[in-house]
Design a protein around this nucleic acid. Structure first.
Length: 523
RNA sequence: GCUCCGGUAGUAUAGACCGGUCAAGUAUUCCGGCCUUUCGAGCCGGAGACCCGGGUUCAAAUCCCGGCCGGAGCACCA
């Protein structure tokens, strides 16, 4: 019976036996919990709505991947919406919009539609005017302290109860430039006694002096700008968003926006608020990343110390690994700290089968082996991948001179060696250590067969002929560099490939010239 | 301080809505062993958790109350 036949027979006669295997398959193809009230909507529409004021990082992965994945799961649409309505404090840039589009593409979450809020200012104005006319919003010219005092007491400010006509007049004045920055805001009326003071009378529009703070896309065309809750609330409805997936820091924003929906006669979409995601060690704060870049602390957006998608990509983390991690985490509201080990485990599963193997000798030290019997040069052939010999092999040329060959081994291995012990140079032969000197280790040929090494349980170490090898720098996750030499066959490897340096770890190739530069992924 | 949301092994997650089949499943991590010319992969085994205290109930990880701990919001930011 072939394996397939056996499995078939087992399935037919004794299905419980394969239960464990099925459980494992299920774990790998873990599906998301169903979205609420899908049947209420014709088609599921989700969105990701970043401010293009920084590149994306792991902290956004949940919003992006869950939104995209759910849209795909229900044959719906996934929308990208740039929320660039603050040209003053959180100034966006065209560069970031582009980098964000590329991040999404890399993640495999290409949006079906894209919108930019700075294109839609007039739409927001329309709704502002409707709300003003209907008496659901007002223009407040109070000093912030006065307003705050009244509102925490649950009382209306001096402006709130003025007639709509007055507020329309003030609105026109705002647009016309009568007020300057800070002199007037439009507020949405709420329950003045709302138990959460943070929700009361929330601001919807403010004035920004775009002569001073010019908007990167529309310059100084507008001086009245919507705040987050207004623009976001209006857009979610107009774009037909059915399911909002965002961090739970937006829970109170949802309460605020619901007032808008009530006044406009709209129904609020389903909303899922997931918990805060951290990854051990790295900071996921945009402002810290931005500051670090500005101050030259980081080498760029892809500095390995950062958890930006650009950095993860550079480090050889596959988007699929991130996707699996996020699907595993799911949309629960609990705060979590994921460990790099977890991400690495997913990534290793993906790259291990495809990563070619090479010998990399870091902090090299010389190993002199004498008594080698071979008269001619030896050609050593080692498969590029131990599990896939069909992928081809790499070659080493060893030329004994008077029975002596000089090798390079890593000092970490050299430190473990003891005089008299036998070790095997992988795929080559066994040597006996004769002496450990300051700058080299002396050894002599012991035997050739691998079986010999196996029998005595000899340590296997990797090596390089002393006269061959390419200088290689490995950029580590803390941005430090480990230098060494990598075998000659490595020269033909293309940039961006992920390979494994045996007994060292997986690395992604950055470039190979006279010298190779690679970046460490993980063990 | 006020408002809200959480709390299952080191990490993440299943179970919680609809209490019993959960003396709690899975992945990763760690430890053993097997296998393997890598300290990789694979295979087998092991360790490791329901925040605490009450209550309801024949029965609570699951429901209720209190406490503790963690997080978020309280901007003319998103």
């Amino acid at each position: 019976m072939s394996i397939e036949e056996q499995i078939r027979a087992l399935k037919a006669l004794w299905p419980e036996a394969l239960a464990k295997e099925r459980a494992r398959e299920r774990a790998e193809e873990r599906v998301l919990p169903p979205l609420p009230n899908v049947e209420k909507y014709g088609r599921v529409v989700t969105r990701f709505a970043p401010n293009p004021d920084c590149v994306l990082h792991l902290g956004s992965a949940r919003a992006i991947i869950l939104s995209h994945e759910y849209a795909r799961m229900y044959n719906g649409r996934f929308i990208l919406r740039f929320e660039d309505t603050d040209p003053r404090l959180k100034r966006s840039s065209l560069q970031f919009m582009d980098l964000i589009r590329k991040d999404l593409e890399w993640l495999g979450c290409t949006p079906d539609e894209e919108y930019i809020q700075s294109d839609r200012i007039e739409i927001y104005y329309e709704y502002a005017e409707k709300l003003l006319k209907d008496g659901h919003a007002y223009i407040c010219t109070c000093k912030p302290e006065d307003f705050r005092r009244r509102v925490v007491a649950g009382e209306p400010c001096a402006c709130r109860n003025l007639p709509p006509e007055e507020h329309m007049r003030r609105w026109e004045a705002m647009l016309g430039g009568v007020y300057s920055e800070g002199e007037a805001v439009m507020r949405i009326k709420t329950d003045l006694k709302h138990p959460n003071p943070a929700i009361r009378e929330w601001p919807a529009f403010r004035i920004i002096d775009t002569k001073r703070y010019s908007h990167p896309r529309v310059g100084s065309k507008y001086r009245v700008w919507p705040l987050y809750n207004f623009a976001c609330g209006i857009d979610d409805h107009l774009m037909g968003i059915t399911h909002i997936i965002r961090g739970k820091e937006h829970l109170t924003n949802q309460e605020r926006q619901k007032y808008l929906y009530r006044y406009l006669g709209w129904e609020y979409p389903e909303a899922i608020h997931y918990g805060r995601l951290k990854i051990e060690g790295a900071s996921l704060s945009k402002s810290k990343i931005l500051r670090g870049i500005r101050e030259g602390l980081y080498s760029g957006w892809d500095d390995p110390r950062l958890a930006t998608f650009l950095a993860l990509k550079r480090r050889g983390i596959k988007p699929e690994a991130i996707r699996r991690l996020i699907l595993e985490i799911g949309p629960r509201p609990a705060d979590i700290t994921v460990s790099w080990d977890n991400l690495y485990a997913y990534n290793r599963k993906i790259i291990d089968p495809i990563a070619d193997r090479f010998f990399f000798v870091w902090n090299p030290i010389k190993l002199v082996v004498r008594n080698i019997n071979a008269r001619d040069a030896l050609i050593i052939r080692i498969p590029l991948h131990p599990d896939h010999p069909d992928k081809g092999s790499r070659l080493f040329h060893i030329k004994p001179v008077n029975g002596v060959v000089n090798f390079l081994i890593t000092s970490r291995d050299a430190e473990q060696l003891k005089s008299g012990s036998i070790i095997r140079l992988m795929e080559l032969f066994n040597v006996v250590i004769e002496g450990i000197h300051g700058d080299y280790v002396a050894a002599s040929f012991h035997s050739e067969p691998y079986s010999e090494a196996k029998k005595i349980g000899a340590q296997l170490i990797h090596w390089l002929p002393e006269d061959e090898g390419i200088k290689c720098d490995v950029i580590m996750p803390d941005n430090s560099v480990i230098s060494g030499l990598v075998e000659e066959s490595f020269r033909i490897v293309q940039p961006d490939r992920i390979v494994q340096f045996e007994r060292f770890g997986f690395v992604r190739v950055e470039r190979i010239n006279e010298k190779a530069t690679v970046i460490f992924a993980h063990k």
